[in-house]
Design a binder for these strands. Structure first.
Length: 632
DNA sequence: TACTCACAG
DNA sequence: GGCTGTGAGTA
């Protein structure tokens, strides 16, 4: 007889409950050296080519071919190139300061003999968009195959493949090719189909024929236990085939090699996928999980979420050994309650100098988690992908890359372009409208002090635009500048960091009504405006509409955009001359109207066009204007 | 809203 | 070890 019950098996039918069954089958898939693979594939290299992905002077991802030369992350590109002249360094895509699109500059990087082609970090910002894009393609394949996929990071996914395994087991007429299913299986399949089982009944023993089922990949089995004893093993064997098929599909359609771990819990899956790389899969059967966790490579700090100071503190406070902590915890605290008591007492009695982060009110929760983790039994649900909750675009700087308000604006332009582009891509992916409600600007001053300012974000149209973000960001930056830079320039500029983020992302179904999208208040405003204007079909009524060729400063509309441009030039020239001639207070900043004019004259191309390399630069783009500021 | 901390690849 | 990010907590 099996040690599992019918309800353990049927629980697998439900995506929301399967993870909690003792028969659960999860897997974790990790794209090997992801950034390096993206660049290698993009540039047409094979896995034999020693490609590394470079960011400034650092190596952020190393292909396996390059690892053979002893190249790893942590070392600089200069050091790596000394190790082999075969190295193929590829820099990430970048935004240029003052531009709102990213592009690749293949061949450019710190190694380029031409000093103009070295991508100084003072003038550029890293773009991770290409990796997010590839990540979405990969994730799409997972979701097509599997009814429950959780995106764990840009290059990692958790899958609950229980339904796929269950379907193999309970719907297949030939579990072993060419052989009729044993009678036990036929009976089980009939019961399962009719739902004529009693959930509390134990399952039958696994019939001998099924113990021949092959595993695809590496079963962790140092003690040479029988591969298939109970139904969990059968499901893992079937799962290993499914995982291989999935990974083959990724390889064939997109070209990426992956590593995969199969196990009953997310934590063990993650350790397993990391166990053998690249292009491998490791299966941790339930009967081998303790041996796996004790194999000498893992400690409690290896578990996800325990990698930081919480893990260290647990070791200290529970007096765990530096090595073999998993087995130690298992053996010394054989019951949940004993570990709860020990941890709670240890926290209570610990001197106030140590243990700063274990909250006394959470000791039971943490103890239970640890108890389960060291047994490979910490069951956490696989949650379907949730939309991001915030997005940030960030730039760290050394030197003079941001030494005034004008520089801030140039970086804001980058941030606004990046964030608007990312929102658009997300909208396309989900076929939803995404409306950020809050915008946040944070700067780290020369002194090291951080200052931030945030506020509500309202956009002009139904879709977010980089101008809206730029406008809102510029306002916040100007306020920070006014508050912290004026009269204190010595501690403020040059900034060592500046970033823009958006949050409170409202997600709206595209098919929903204007009321759903903009709220009742806005909808009332919209109707009012509609009534005034007449037959206005636009849905972008929530806020002040974007008035074509309208000058805020003069409260005046111009006939043509050309006339408007000339008028805008007049304002900017005025502001510049005041600034450069010193006729005005040197610290005079552009008025908000002037800034707005500046922004408007740079209406970007549609996002689809902006991704490609622009052939010629529009005369009078903001970077051209801002270069005058730098001379002051 | 402003700011800090923890954690991860 | 620097860079890029996400999320939670606090006042």
């Amino acid at each position: 007889m099996s040690k599992y019950k019918w309800k353990d098996l049927t629980k697998l039918k439900s995506p929301s409950m399967a993870y909690d069954s003792p028969l659960s089958v999860l897997c974790h898939i990790d794209v090997n050296c992801f950034y390096a693979q993206v660049e290698a594939i993009r540039c047409g290299y094979t896995k034999e080519d020693p490609v590394v992905c470079v960011q400034w002077n650092s190596i952020v991802a190393v292909s396996y071919a390059a690892r053979k030369y002893g190249i790893s992350r942590m070392i600089t590109i200069q050091e790596a190139m000394k190790k082999t002249d075969k190295l193929i360094p590829i820099h990430t895509a970048v935004f240029k300061k003052g531009e709102d699109f990213w592009q690749y500059h293949d061949g450019w990087g710190p190694w380029n003999p031409d000093k103009d082609k070295r991508l100084p970090s003072s003038d550029y910002k890293i773009s991770l968009d290409p990796y997010r894009r590839e990540s979405r393609k990969i994730f799409k394949i997972f979701t097509e195959y599997c009814d429950l996929a959780e995106k764990a990071s840009v290059d990692e996914v958790f899958l609950d493949i229980a339904r796929l395994c269950l379907q193999s087991l309970m719907c297949s007429e030939q579990l072993i090719p060419g052989k009729e299913n044993p009678e036990t299986i036929q009976l089980m399949q009939a019961k399962f189909k009719d739902e004529s089982y009693d959930g509390n009944q134990f399952l039958p023993a696994v019939p001998g024929e099924l113990k021949e089922l092959p595993f695809i990949g590496d079963v962790y089995n140092p003690e040479d236990l029988p591969l298939i004893e109970d139904w969990d093993d059968v499901l893992f064997a079937l799962g290993s085939r499914i995982a291989q098929e999935l990974r083959d599909e990724i390889k064939q359609t997109l070209g990426y090699t992956t590593s995969c771990g199969l196990a009953s819990t997310k934590n063990v899956c993650k350790l397993a996928s990391n166990f053998k790389k690249p292009d491998a899969q490791t299966i941790i059967k339930n009967s081998c999980v303790n041996t796996f966790l004790d194999n000498g490579k893992f400690e409690i700090t290896t578990f996800w979420s325990l990698g930081g100071i919480l893990g260290k503190e647990l070791i200290q406070i529970l007096k765990l050994p530096q090595q073999g902590s998993n087995g130690y915890v298992r053996e010394n605290w054989p019951t949940r309650d004993s570990l709860r008591k020990s941890l709670s007492r240890a926290v209570r009695e610990s001197p106030s100098t140590s243990s700063t982060i274990i909250d006394a009110s959470r000791t039971n929760e943490i103890a239970d988690k640890l108890y389960d983790l060291v047994r490979g039994q910490y069951r956490v649900a696989v949650t379907p992908q949730t939309i991001v909750k915030s997005m940030m675009s960030n730039k760290n700087m050394t030197g003079q890359a941001c030494s005034g308000l004008a520089d801030c604006f140039s970086w804001l332009e980058v941030f606004a372009g990046e964030l608007a582009g990312r929102v658009h891509e997300l909208e396309q992916e989900y076929d939803k409208i995404i409306r950020p409600r809050t915008i946040h600007i944070l700067v780290r001053a020369k002194s090291g002090d951080t200052h931030s300012k945030s506020g509500p974000f309202v956009q002009n149209g139904a879709k977010i635009s980089s101008q809206d973000l730029l406008k809102a960001g510029a306002k916040l930056v100007a306020e920070l500048d006014a508050k912290f830079a004026r009269g204190k320039e010595h501690s403020f500029y040059p900034l060592i960091n500046i970033n823009m983020s958006i949050s409170n992302l409202d997600v709206v179904d595209c098919r929903k009504s204007v009321i759903d999208m903009f709220g009742n208040q806005a909808s009332v405003q919209g109707r009012q405006r509609k009534a005034n204007v007449g037959n206005n079909q636009s849905a972008s009524l929530a806020n002040e509409p974007f008035k074509e060729n309208w000058c805020d400063e003069c409260n005046k509309t111009f006939e043509t955009s050309r006339e408007f441009q000339e008028h805008a030039d007049y304002h900017i020239a005025l502001a510049l001359s005041e600034k450069m001639n010193g006729t005005n207070d040197c610290s005079r900043r552009l008025t908000f109207g002037e800034k707005r004019l500046l922004m408007r004259r740079n209406a970007p191309e549609p996002p689809s066009k902006r991704r490609s390399k622009p052939k010629s630069k529009t005369a009078g783009s903001s970077s051209d204007i801002f270069k005058y500021f730098k001379k002051e």
